[in-house]
Computed example of a mutant assay.
Amino acid sequence: MGSLRRTEEYGIGMTGLVPARSFCPEGRLFIKREDGNLGGSIKARTAYFILKDLCRRMGDLAGLTLIESTSGNLGIALARLGADLGVRVLCAVDPTVATEKLAMLAEAGGEIRMVHQAGGRDFRAARIAYVKKQAEETNCIWPNQYSNEVGMLAHEATTGPEIWAETNGLVDIVVVSVGTGGTICGIGSFLRSCGRDVLVVGVEPVGSIIFGGEPGPYLSSGAGLDGPSPLLQRHGSVIDLYAKVADDLAIAACREFAAKEPFGIGITGAASALVGRQLARLHPDKLVVAIAADGAENYRTIIDSLHVQPNIVRNAEFRLLPPAWEHGLGGV
């Protein structure tokens, strides 16, 4: 019977917290670098907890097939870890997923299912609908990262405590890009339990309507949804403020960050870093942590090919608003 080894044996967790002094010389901005995890992203934490939970509930998973909607990172991690369990992993992706991630998915052993828009849905909603249908009509197991409590627990048990320890309990603001909501809800829940008044800020791409607004197209780089996920509906009360960052600003920030710091960050991490920099400038006495879910190499084709104004981020300002959850909380 296959089984999972300890997280440290896979290189999951205990990632670094690095100051972004050149990107943000006016404040105390730190980047939580998640590209050091297995598969190069924060989703290794989620995948490990999901598979560990399935093993606990179902026993031997060998020969079973998992299917999940993914922008790449979770699928990569599920496929890498699933190999130890003898699990087949089907990954529902869409045409906006970075080519680098598709290559990594295939290399990890994930089987790619390309899903196109249908019925007026955005890409991610179309992927979820496809996966739900496959799970209902076949023997595939759908972990459902959008509703699975262990996805939140992964960050409540690991990422949140790491941030607390790495800042010696002095973190004031944490900024997290939001998709499923598992990362921000897990981190926020842990920090709430520490007794310190930490401001939790969510970031979504313009076009995503997790926090409301007008729907529109956006890149499938790990953030965004056509409304709050079930996880967010249950636990989103930990989020104090949110901001929306357009894809072109996030990509320009990827380039600026790489030019000023000795490492690169992915598109969602750059969006969070932009909002984090604004907060650090406004509150130079506060310690601000922005989560970089993965590295720039996962999106090199997109970052290098899309034309954006080089100075577009210089004076960019983002409205920070409290969530006005149109669908309410606690009902799913």
Results as ranks from 00 to 15, higher is better:
232 L>H: 01
195 G>M: 08
95 P>V: 08
75 G>P: 00
70 T>S: 11
171 V>I: 12
54 L>R: 07
153 L>F: 10
73 N>P: 10
177 S>I: 14
251 I>K: 03
244 K>D: 06
270 A>Y: 07
332 V>M: 14
91 C>D: 09
248 D>T: 13
97 V>I: 15
240 D>W: 08
105 L>V: 04
55 C>A: 06
269 G>N: 09
118 A>F: 08
317 E>T: 15
88 R>N: 07
260 K>T: 06
244 K>G: 01
150 V>Y: 04
225 L>T: 07
45 R>C: 03
281 R>V: 07
290 A>S: 12
306 L>S: 02
28 R>V: 00
121 R>I: 11
263 F>Q: 01
277 R>E: 06
179 G>H: 05
79 A>P: 02
230 P>G: 07
52 K>G: 02
101 K>S: 04
58 M>P: 13
218 Y>A: 04
61 L>T: 06
20 A>V: 00
209 I>S: 10
30 F>H: 14
308 V>I: 08
176 V>G: 08
171 V>T: 07
119 G>T: 05
45 R>W: 01
174 V>D: 15
18 V>C: 10
137 E>C: 06
10 Y>W: 10
86 G>K: 02
223 A>Q: 02
327 H>M: 09
84 D>K: 00
148 N>S: 04
273 A>C: 15
57 R>W: 10
187 I>G: 01
226 D>N: 10
162 E>H: 06
158 T>M: 12
119 G>V: 05
129 A>D: 04
231 L>E: 09
117 Q>E: 14
107 E>G: 13
162 E>M: 09
262 P>Q: 01
33 R>P: 00
19 P>S: 08
292 A>S: 13
302 I>V: 14
154 A>P: 05
252 A>G: 02
312 I>M: 15
149 E>L: 15
224 G>F: 00
149 E>W: 12
198 V>K: 06
108 A>K: 06
175 V>R: 07
189 S>N: 09
298 N>M: 11
247 D>W: 03
104 M>E: 13
145 Q>S: 10
222 G>M: 08
107 E>P: 04
2 G>N: 05
93 V>T: 15
153 L>V: 14
313 V>A: 05
147 S>W: 00
307 H>D: 12
266 G>Q: 02
306 L>K: 09
29 L>H: 03
176 V>T: 12
317 E>W: 12
151 G>K: 03
285 D>A: 15
116 H>C: 06
267 I>V: 10
315 N>T: 10
90 L>M: 15
109 G>K: 04
175 V>H: 09
28 R>Q: 13
277 R>W: 02
328 G>R: 08
332 V>L: 13
51 L>V: 00
15 T>S: 12
265 I>Y: 02
142 W>Q: 03
32 K>C: 02
257 F>Y: 14
43 K>R: 11
203 V>K: 01
40 G>I: 05
90 L>E: 11
96 T>G: 06
210 I>W: 02
259 A>P: 09
67 I>P: 12
59 G>V: 05
105 L>K: 07
120 G>S: 12
